[in-house]
Computed example of a mutant assay.
Amino acid sequence: MKQSTRGTLAAVVTGVAAVVGAAASPAAAVETVPVPVPLNGLENSLNMELPKLGGEVPLPVPGAPEGPRYVEGRLIPERTLPQLPVTAGLPGAGLRAPLPHILGDDFDHVGVEAPAADVRTLAPGLSVDAPLTPPNPDNYGLPGAKLPQVGVLAPVLQTVPGAELVMGPGL
Rank of each mutant, 00 (worst) to 15 (best):
G7A: 14
G7E: 11
G7D: 11
T8E: 09
L9Y: 08
A10P: 02
A10D: 08
A11N: 05
V12M: 10
V12H: 02
V13T: 13
T14V: 13
G15V: 12
G15S: 12
G15C: 12
V16Y: 05
A18I: 15
V19M: 15
V20P: 07
A22V: 11
A22G: 15
A22C: 12
A24P: 06
A24I: 09
A24W: 12
A27K: 12
A27P: 00
A28W: 11
A29K: 14
A29M: 12
V30P: 01
V30F: 12
V30R: 15
E31F: 09
T32C: 06
P34Q: 07
V35E: 04
V35C: 04
V35K: 05
V35F: 08
P36F: 04
L39S: 05
L39E: 03
L39A: 06
G41A: 12
L42N: 08
E43S: 15
N44R: 14
N44S: 15
N44D: 15
N44F: 05
S45N: 10
L46R: 13
L46N: 08
N47F: 05
N47C: 05
E49M: 13
L50N: 06
P51E: 02
K52Q: 10
G54Q: 05
G55Y: 03
V57W: 06
P58I: 02
L59S: 02
P60M: 06
P62H: 02
G63L: 00
A64L: 13
A64Q: 11
A64I: 14
E66Y: 07
G67I: 00
P68R: 09
P68L: 04
R69L: 13
Y70H: 12
G73I: 05
G73H: 04
G73V: 06
R74F: 09
R74V: 09
I76T: 14
P77M: 05
E78S: 14
E78T: 12
R79M: 07
P82V: 04
P82W: 01
P82R: 00
Q83R: 12
P85I: 03
P85H: 04
V86Y: 00
A88T: 14
A88R: 00
A88Q: 01
L90P: 00
G94M: 05
G94V: 05
R96K: 10
R96E: 10
A97D: 02
P98L: 10
L99I: 10
L99N: 03
L99P: 00
L103S: 13
L103I: 09
L103E: 14
D105M: 09
D108S: 11
D108C: 09
D108W: 15
D108R: 14
D108F: 15
V112P: 00
V112S: 00
V112F: 10
P115F: 06
A116I: 02
A116E: 00
A117E: 01
A117D: 01
D118R: 11
V119P: 00
R120G: 06
L122W: 01
L122V: 02
A123S: 15
A123W: 04
G125V: 02
L126H: 07
A130F: 07
A130V: 08
L132K: 07
T133Y: 04
T133D: 04
T133F: 04
P134Q: 11
P135D: 11
N139V: 11
Y140P: 02
G141R: 07
L142N: 12
A145K: 07
